[in-house]
Design a protein around this nucleic acid. Structure first.
Lengths: 157, 157
DNA sequence: TAAAATCCTACTAATTCGATAGGAATTCTA
DNA sequence: TAGAATTCCTATCGAATTAGTAGGATTTTA
C-alpha cells in the first residue's frame, strides 16, 4: 500500500495542477486545508517535492509553492519512487533499486522472479502514464458520467 | 514490496510442489535448509498456510508438511493477501479489504482512485494466474533457454 | 522593522517486521 | 511403554518504519 506521505504528495500535486493555472504560489496552509492534510506534515512533503524538482517555491510573505514541471510531465511512478522507494514487489526485479534476494538460490531461473518482473513492467507502464494531466482528465470524465447517470435516473421516474 | 514472510511462504510452497510429487510429508528443517529460510520463522509461516487450507501436516515422528491443494489451485495473490493484506495500493480500491481514504474528498470522482483501480485489476489478474504450477513451468522454460544460450555460445567459438 | 511565509533539523509515539524461546501435544519405533 | 522426533502454539523482543510534531532560522514584502 502507498504510504500516507505518497498519497498526500499526489493529492497536493493534483491540487496545484488543477487550481493553479496562473502559476502564482499557493500557501501550504491553503493546500493543507483544501486536501485534508496535516499542515506540518505537508510542509515536509512539499519540501521534498521541491528538492526532486517537481515543485518550486517562493519564500516570505506572498510565498508558497507552484508546479515546476508541466502536468503532463509529472507522473505517479516518480512520486511513488521518491517517497516509498521501488515500485517492484521484489528487490531483484527493481530497476532503480535493484538488490539480490538474500535467500535466493538461482536468480536466472527463478519462476517467482519471472512473474514479478512481468507485474513490475505492467505496473510501471500504467503509473508512468498516470500524469497529473491524465488524473485530472479522468476526474472530469467521471464527473460527466455521474451527472449523465443522474439525468437518466430522472427520466425513468 | 513483499514482506520476507510472503517471499518465504511462496518459496516453501513452490518447493513442496516441485519436490514432493508423492505427497509424503516434508520436515520443516528440510524446507528451511533447502530454501535458506530461518527454521523457527518458517515454522510459523507453514502453520499459517495450513490454517489457510493450502497445506496440511502430520505430527510426530515421520511428520511434516504437504500440499493440501493442487499446484494449479494455489496462487500468489492468495498467499500475498494472507500475509501482507491487500494487493491494492490504495485502501479505497481494495476488494476484500476495502476502506475509505480518510483524507478523500470525493471518492466517486477521484482520478487517483481511477488509476489505482486499473493497476489493481491488472495486478490481481496476473497474480491469480501465477499458480505454483505456472511458476514451476516458467522456471523450467528459463532453464531450457539458458542451456540453449550456452550451446549457441559454444558454436560461435 | 514587523508580519508572514518557507526552510530545516530534531524528536517522538505507535506500529510493523523479522525473528527467537520454550514448552505442550502428538506420533512413531525400539 | 518409554523415548525420540516432530509439529503446535503463545509470548517476547529488538530494530526499523511510519506518521506526525516542535521550534526556531531564514527570507521576503509592506
Amino acid at each position: 500500500m502507498l504510504s500516507k506521505k505518497t498519497k498526500y504528495a499526489i493529492n497536493a500535486l493534483v491540487y496545484l495542477a488543477r487550481e493553479n493555472k496562473n502559476g502564482e504560489p499557493v500557501q501550504i496552509s491553503k493546500i493543507a486545508e483544501s486536501e485534508n492534510i496535516p499542515r506540518k506534515f505537508l510542509e515536509a512533503i512539499l519540501l521534498e517535492l521541491r528538492h526532486a524538482g517537481m515543485l518550486n517555491s517562493r519564500k516570505g510573505k506572498t510565498g508558497g509553492y507552484y508546479l515546476q514541471q508541466n502536468p503532463e510531465e509529472i507522473n505517479i511512478a516518480d512520486v511513488m519512487r521518491l517517497f516509498d522507494g521501488p515500485i517492484a514487489l521484489l528487490p531483484c526485479v527493481a530497476y532503480k533499486y535493484y538488490e539480490r534476494c538474500e535467500e535466493c538460490i538461482d536468480e536466472e531461473t527463478c519462476g517467482i522472479r519471472s512473474v514479478f518482473s512481468d507485474v513490475r513492467s505492467e505496473t510501471v507502464k500504467m503509473l508512468k502514464g498516470a500524469t497529473l494531466a491524465e488524473i485530472i482528465k479522468r476526474s472530469e470524465s467521471l464527473k460527466k458520467e455521474i451527472s449523465l447517470q443522474k439525468k437518466t435516473l430522472k427520466k425513468k421516474k
